[in-house]
Design a protein around this nucleic acid. Structure first.
Length: 428
RNA sequence: GGAAGCGUGGCCGAGCGGUUUAAGGCACUAGUCUUGAAAACUAGCGACGGGGUGACUCGUCCGUGAGUUCGAAUCUCACCGCUUCCGCCA
């Protein structure tokens, strides 16, 4: 959520900056709502003040045993009028809040301006794609002999689900273990176990609601409402600080969790239908930082470095790109994507997305800290994948495939694989 | 699923229709004292929002939402959460 003061003071500048990310701010609507709000609020508060002072007089008169009838007459009609105004104000403030909740974050000034993914800017490439002296298979073909089954996934659930059996399931687990161990032992993160079903307030906090409900799986629960399956553990990790005032010395907080993620992928029909690039359910190791506002861009670099380190150790070629204004997610002020080399697609594909959301989520969540003057101030929040486990498995299968259909296990994963050095065909 | 109890500022905790302008304490900030620190003493100190150039001023907030009342932290109803006990259960 943007600071409403910013819209009040610099509406057209805000509109211009939002335009760079392809969002049309309805300035006419905002101005109209604000004008009404101001008028109704002033009138309501005047009336409330009148009621309060009259009620106080009644109390004092009664205490002295005086006749209160004359004052009662004075306040007689006040209640109804006040009630109407209060309701009107509540409706207006609801509208204004909903308006604000649907506005994306402002891009940071340094973010390249652009309309779509075409205009993202490559920052660096690390590693050299391997030269194959045999026809390269994609992960679906490599995996089919090793226990990767989209048929069973489809039978159990439907399209965009996968089932893994045997050593490949083991490898999938090993990848996640390796990631989380690296982040907790070497990068200073605290390991967390989180709920996979969260409430609406949490999703509003991180920005998935109210605008992107169709991307989520909703689970009705009781008469009261619903749970939602987390689309990423960014939601459960970041909302740890929702409605909290954090002591200064507790910053920065660095949290990580390995969780499944659930996405309905509405609106991406026909995209990445083959293989496990785009699934309804996938595992991810998430990295979240809760930091002092002055440190958030340093934290972003640090976070990207932590995600990159996983790929370096797995010896997978990758590149880092800065997303342009038009390609960034709703809550991000700046985003780096990390893309891993997939030989079968002959291209780099996203495996991690690291964003600084500055105070955007904190303002929605009321997540604050006490600064050195003991005043409350919004924290900055960051999140990034460290990494997507399923896509990492894809990258390992494709980059480490051998001509005979086996797959070499990357060295750093071997300790997690009970010493197995290759995945080979198994009928079990 | 059944029963009982409880949700008050950063934390603890009093208040149970009208000087509540939410007592008191802890923590925190500044000052006095001190070589420095601690202790002691003095003062300050909730969050959010509106109006005003400003000293300031007004409003809202006691889990959430409705209701009763001239007036609600306080009374009524519903919901949510927590604790304890019983039942069931990986």
């Amino acid at each position: 959520m943007l600071d409403i003061q910013l819209l009040r003071n610099d509406l057209y500048d805000v509109a211009h900056r939002l335009d760079q990310r392809g969002f049309q701010l309805d300035t006419v609507m905002f101005s109209a709502l604000e004008t009404q709000r101001k008028e109704i609020q002033t009138r309501t508060q005047d009336l409330q003040a009148k009621r309060n002072s009259a009620s106080k007089l009644i109390g004092q008169a009664k205490a002295k045993g005086e006749d209160v009838a004359p004052i009662m007459v004075e306040v007689a009609g006040l209640g109804d009028e006040l009630k109407m105004l209060e309701e009107e104000l509540a409706v207006l403030q609801g509208k204004l809040n909903d308006f604000l909740m649907r506005i994306p974050n402002l891009p940071h000034e340094k973010v390249p301006v652009g309309r779509s993914a075409e205009e993202n800017v490559e920052v660096r490439r690390v590693g050299t794609p391997r030269q194959f002296d045999f026809p390269v298979k994609d992960h679906v073909d490599v995996g089919s002999g090793l226990g990767l089954s989209f048929e069973i996934g489809a039978k159990l659930s439907g399209a965009r689900f996968v089932f893994m059996k045997g050593p490949i399931a083991h490898l999938h687990r090993a990848i996640a273990q390796f990631m989380i161990d690296t982040h907790t032992r070497e990068h200073g993160y605290t390991e967390c176990y989180t709920p996979y079903l969260v409430n609406e307030a949490s999703l509003r906090g991180t920005g998935q609601l109210p605008k992107f409900e169709e991307d989520l799986f909703r689970v009705p629960h009781g008469d009261a409402g619903s749970f939602y399956l987390i689309p990423t553990s960014e939601v459960s990790l970041t909302n740890v600080v929702r409605d909290e005032i954090i002591p200064l010395e507790a910053l920065p907080m660095k949290l990580t969790a390995h969780t499944p993620c659930f996405r309905s992928e509405a609106g991406s029909y026909g995209k990445d239908t083959r293989g496990m690039i785009r699934q309804h359910q996938f595992d991810k190791v998430e990295l979240v930082h809760i930091v002092h506002p002055e440190k958030s861009y340093d934290a972003l670099d640090e976070l990207v470095g932590h995600a990159e380190e996983i790929l370096k150790r797995l010896e997978l070629p990758y590149r880092v790109i800065t997303l342009c204004t038009g390609d960034m997610g709703f809550g991000a002020a700046k985003t780096y994507d990390i893309e891993v080399w997939l030989p079968a697609q002959n291209t780099y594909r996203e495996i991690s997305s690291c964003s600084n959301c500055d105070a955007f989520q904190a303002r929605r969540m009321q997540a604050r800290f006490r600064n050195s003057q003991a005043k409350t101030e919004f924290v900055h929040t960051l999140n990034g994948s460290g990494l997507a486990v399923g896509r990492t498995l894809v990258a390992v299968l494709e980059n480490y495939q051998n001509e005979d259909g086996s797959v070499t296990i990357p060295k750093v994963l071997q300790p997690y694989m009970a010493g197995i050095e290759r995945l080979e065909f198994s009928s079990k």
